[in-house]
């Protein structure tokens, strides 16, 4: 009797959560119509901002890959003084309010500040530039890649590296030919999560680089300037893009699980 009461309460709460979360998403998804698609693709600014967002977040992910993979490997393989601090530094950007992250970035990469001046020497500026957009996206999303890759590297037994090196491979070769392929599915998951997080970023990007306009910034701009009706089409498209990425991620994770089961 008590157990049935317990289950009923929990089921009601579960359904409530589903309605709260799913309703707005479903509402947006069913809004997709030929007219909406036609409207979006006739508006060159929207099309440009969507492709720019996809492109910028992809660059942020590739940059994350370049810096994040070595970091993840070091954190997975080695114990060293200050490791906990580095792990916290990797995780903290996710915890920041993203507008605060934008302020933090502007305070150091702005043209009047230390890093801003240093990069300006090489002709790289961040305020209202593509670099600013990429930096904003990178800052709030790189921890997804690092943490996922770190877990992937941890799963690769260090003895596989020893064996590879015993067979003549240098450290770099054993990393490239053995460790990286073995951790690939986790790295790929991390990349997709970072890419998805980057393309949905608004707070950090809007403060550091309002222009060139990313899709989330354009949604905000259309909403504040013209109202709900004009911000909805691009929002629907962005939700579909996010959904496709989510399905892709789940597919990869499922494949990985099946593969891991086979290995054991």
């Amino acid at each position: 009797m008590k157990s049935s009461f317990f289950n009923t309460i929990f089921k009601i709460l579960f359904v409530l959560l589903l309605i709260l979360v799913a309703a707005p998403v479903i509402n947006m998804l069913v809004s997709l119509s030929p007219e909406l698609i036609s409207y979006v693709f006739q508006d060159k600014e929207i099309v440009r901002s969507i492709f720019f967002t996809l492109e910028a977040s992809l660059y942020a992910t590739l940059f994350g890959l370049l810096l994040g993979i070595p970091t993840a490997y070091l954190l997975a393989r080695h114990e060293f003084w200050g490791k906990g601090v580095i792990e916290a530094i990797v995780d903290i950007p996710v915890m920041f309010p993203h507008s605060a992250a934008g302020i933090a970035l502007l305070s150091i990469y702005g043209s009047r500040f230390l890093f801003g001046k240093m990069f300006a020497v090489f002709g790289i500026e961040f305020v209202d530039t593509v670099f600013g957009v990429i930096l904003g996206m990178f800052f709030v999303s790189f921890s997804y890649l690092v943490n996922s890759a770190k877990e992937g590297f941890k799963k690769v037994d260090v003895h596989l590296e020893y064996v590879a090196r015993n067979l003549g491979a240098s450290r770099f070769q054993s990393f490239w030919k053995v460790v990286l392929p073995c951790a690939f599915s986790d790295i790929l998951s991390g990349m997709i999560m970072m890419w998805a997080r980057g393309l949905s970023e608004f707070g950090a990007v809007v403060i550091l680089a309002y222009h060139p306009m990313t899709a989330p910034v354009m949604i905000y701009e259309r909403f504040t300037s013209f109202g709900l009706q004009y911000s909805k089409p691009i929002s629907v498209i962005m939700i579909y893009i996010s959904l496709i990425i989510f399905i892709l991620l789940r597919f990869i994770q499922h494949k990985t699980k099946v593969k891991d089961k086979r290995k054991t």
Binding site: L160, V163, A164, R165, N166, A169, P181, C182, K263
Partner: peptide, 19 residues
């Protein structure tokens, strides 16, 4: 260096490259 030593090894867990 490890990779230059003239020894072969077989471990208990073999560590065959799974990929």
């Amino acid at each position: 260096a490890l990779q230059k030593r003239p020894v072969g090894i077989v471990y208990q867990n073999l560590y065959l490259f799974p990929h």
